[in-house]
Each structure stands twice: as structure tokens, then as C-alpha cells.
């Protein structure tokens, strides 16, 4: 199976700190791969490097064989890489529906003619004139956005036209995931999708991610809740201090001494360390 995304020798330094240190990993088409590790291991930095919000000091990121590590975030999104953010970045004053529709931005074809130079002007004119093709496309995307929102059930559907700032923290996370799904991404980057969620909400989110995986969605997941990681992942990469310390199927990774050391062993409190970290966030 050819890898959809291949990361080789990825480096990122902040001053003297090496946040990501010669990182190698890949995600195959249809796989669900998890990045785990203690806080500060470089997981979110890796997401920022893949999605173009931050530039690597070295190494390569290839999507379908093409280098993307020097592309702008909007160009990487246009190639079908969607992401959510660790602390949530919904558009606060936009409605739930509009938030999700922004996610479909890269899929606007009729409304955004891909013409050199005159393209922007044409886009402006088409937004004013709104010929049937543009209206059809808008209606189709809106129907699709509503369908995506329906996947979150009663959590979001009654709040379709409410501004995102009025939502609970967990609901904002859901909106963000819905927005990422609206892109119909080839690769979905989920950064701690269940942060701040209670156990029943976490279980719902886990079910949704399992559903996405069953549909063939390629997913790279950052998550602290290890039960969820073990249940969902095809493969797991464990990071510590920016370096990869273990990789493989969940069952194999969980018993590796280096992982136990990194994940639980920094403090001698055993099993509670992971929870403490979660609570600290």
C-alpha cells in the first residue's frame, strides 16, 4: 500500500529547543494512525508543520509523493489536508452552518473559477450575479453541510444558526471537526478531538471517528486518552522530546518499555500520570 503522507527527517527548532527531531512516519490511504506522547513531545508542532502553519528547519513532507513542506497552509488545504486545532479555532461570530461551509471552501468550483489573473474578479462578479450553476453549487454544499452536522445528532442540529461563540466547549470541538469534514479531506488531522469532553461525550466522539474510519477516511490522530487510541488506531507512533521512540500496532507499542518510561515513568505515580496531564490542560 502506497503511503498517502510520508514524513522524513522532519526537524523544527525553537531557539535551543528541538521540538521535532528527525521525525519519520507515514500514513497509508484509509489508515488511522495516532501520534501519542507526553505534553511537549512535538505532536502539535508536527501538525503545524504538515499543515503549513509552521515551516520545518529540515526534512520533507510528501503528500502522494509531492513535496508540501514549503507550501502555504491554504495550498496544503487545497490538496485535501484538513485539520482541527488543539485548543479550538472556530469562527466565533459565524453560525454553526457557516463555520462548516467555510470548511467546504476548497470545493467551490462554480463560484471560484480557476482562472489566472481574472479569477478573483470573476469570483467577485459571480458572487454578485449568482448564475444558476453557482446557486446550485451553494445549495448542494449547504445540504451536505447540514448532513455533516446531522452526524453529531442533537448536539449540533438544534444550533444550526447559532453563532459559535454561544456553544459549549465540546460543541465547538464538534463544529471544528464538522468543518474539517466539509472539505472531504484526503487526510484528516485531528488534534485531541476529545479534549475537555466528559466520558460519554468521549465515547460519542470515538464512535464517530470509528465510523469515519470505516468509511475509508485517512486520519492522523493526536490523543491523550489511551483507551481510545488503542481501540481506534491501525498503528501508533510514540513521540518524546520530539523524537520517535516507538512505532507499531497499538498492542505492541503499549508493552514497549521505552513507551512506559516516557509516558508514565517521568513521575513515579504510575497510571495516574496520564490523567494528571489531561487534567492539567
Amino acid at each position: 500500500m502506497a503511503a498517502l503522507i510520508e514524513v522524513h527527517g522532519l526537524m523544527r527548532r525553537f531557539g535551543g529547543v528541538v521540538a521535532v527531531d528527525s521525525l519519520d512516519f507515514e500514513v497509508g490511504e484509509g489508515e488511522l494512525v495516532s501520534l501519542i506522547g507526553p505534553n511537549g513531545a512535538g505532536k502539535t508542532t508536527t501538525f503545524n508543520l504538515i499543515s503549513g502553519l509552521d515551516w520545518a528547519d529540515g526534512g520533507s513532507v510528501r503528500l502522494d509523493g509531492g513535496a508540501i513542506e514549503r507550501l502555504k497552509p491554504e495550498a496544503i488545504a487545497a490538496l485535501g489536508v484538513a485539520r482541527t486545532f488543539q485548543h479550538g479555532r472556530v469562527f466565533a461570530n459565524l453560525s454553526v452552518l457557516d463555520n462548516v461551509l467555510v470548511g467546504a471552501h476548497t470545493r467551490l468550483k462554480a463560484a471560484r473559477p480557476r482562472l489566472p489573473i481574472v479569477g478573483p474578479i470573476a469570483e467577485l462578479a459571480l458572487a454578485l450575479i449568482r448564475p444558476p450553476a453557482v446557486r446550485r453549487e451553494a445549495a448542494a454544499l449547504e445540504a451536505e453541510a447540514r448532513a455533516i452536522i446531522t452526524r453529531f445528532g442533537e448536539r449540533l442540529t438544534p444550533r444550526l444558526h447559532q453563532p459559535a461563540y454561544s456553544l459549549s466547549y465540546a460543541n465547538r470541538r464538534r463544529v471544528e471537526i464538522a468543518r474539517a469534514l466539509a472539505m472531504q479531506p484526503r487526510l484528516l488531522l485531528l488534534d485531541e478531538p476529545t479534549a475537555g469532553m466528559n466520558p460519554s461525550e468521549t465515547a460519542e466522539m470515538q464512535a464517530l471517528i470509528a465510523e469515519l474510519k470505516a468509511e475509508g477516511q485517512t486520519i492522523l490522530l493526536i490523543e491523550h486518552k489511551l483507551d481510545m487510541v488503542m481501540a481506534l488506531s491501525d498503528r501508533v507512533y510514540v513521540l518524546d522530546d520530539g523524537r520517535r521512540i516507538a512505532a507499531g500496532p497499538p498492542a505492541a507499542v503499549r508493552s514497549e518499555p521505552a513507551v512506559i518510561e516516557a509516558y508514565l515513568g517521568h513521575s513515579a505515580v504510575g497510571d495516574t500520570a496520564a490523567e494528571t496531564k489531561e487534567a492539567a490542560e
Binding site: N93, V102, H105, T106, A127
Partner: peptide, 20 residues
């Protein structure tokens, strides 16, 4: 869609760029 995009730019440029 144009107005929606402008408002997304206003709210959060990083998130807007990550959505293409």
C-alpha cells in the same frame, strides 16, 4: 460565499487559511 469567507478571515486568519 464571498461574505462568509470575508467574515472567516476576520474571525481567525489561521483557521481560515487552514481551510484553504
Amino acid at each position: 460565499h464571498f461574505g462568509r469567507t470575508l467574515r472567516a478571515v476576520r474571525e481567525d486568519e489561521i483557521a481560515a487559511r487552514s481551510n484553504g
